[in-house]
Amino acid sequence: MSADPSLILDGREIPFVPGQTILQAADDAGVYIPRLCDKPGLEPFGSCRVCVVRANGRTVSSCTYPASLGMVVESETPELQAMRKVLLEMLFVEGNHFCMSCEKSGHCELQALGYRFGITAPQFEYQFPHREVDASHPDILIDHNRCILCARCVRTSRDLDGKEVFGFVGRGPHKRLAASTGSRLKDTNADVTDRAIDACPVGALLRKRVGFAVPVGQRPYDTVPIGAPEPVQEARR
């Protein structure tokens, strides 16, 4: 009987199935690597870089990098944690995140990572960029102020809803999410039951009229950090 191939993650041997990424192998072994743009069931995208690890000495995103036999992976090192924290801080300052009035607060993965990493204030200047809100659809709204360009809605709409409601336009700092068949969400075939809406990790894509349903103190990330066994299940729902 031949043993499963394995790699070494922070000194611990974990098995993987050939074809898996480092992140998938870590998830299966019950080891949490922080991430935002990755969501189980979606094709890896590798845009947020929060899942950064060092694999055989190279700095890579663990959600896109294939696991290989005997690979030595570092994740929970002070250096990598510091990199992740900086990436999160940049996400906070480059959008407009008013958590105190956001429907997603307490359910938001970006905010939850801020808590997990103990971010009390970002070291960068707030950009206060000009971003639009698209509230044209009767049941769904896009608040670009909070969008982190993770493409979870794009991939979910395309691969799970079979629709292609969302896409990106522009490049670099001008890149933004767009309704792909028209300029406004109301011109698309987006529907309130689309799984794409649940895929958004932040408060950028929301169902109307259902916010603030869970009392403060009982929301998923009020008392338990993201990546702790229970809330990870919650986030994957």
């Binding site: 995140h97 008013f98 105190m100 009035s101 009390t120 204030a121 206060f128 000009h130 102020n145």
Partner: peptide
């Protein structure tokens, strides 16, 4: 508080 750490609600005018 958020107003001191982020600008908070008054910073909505920054938009």
């Amino acid at each position: 508080g958020d107003c001191a750490t982020t600008g908070g609600i008054p910073a909505l005018r920054n938009l």
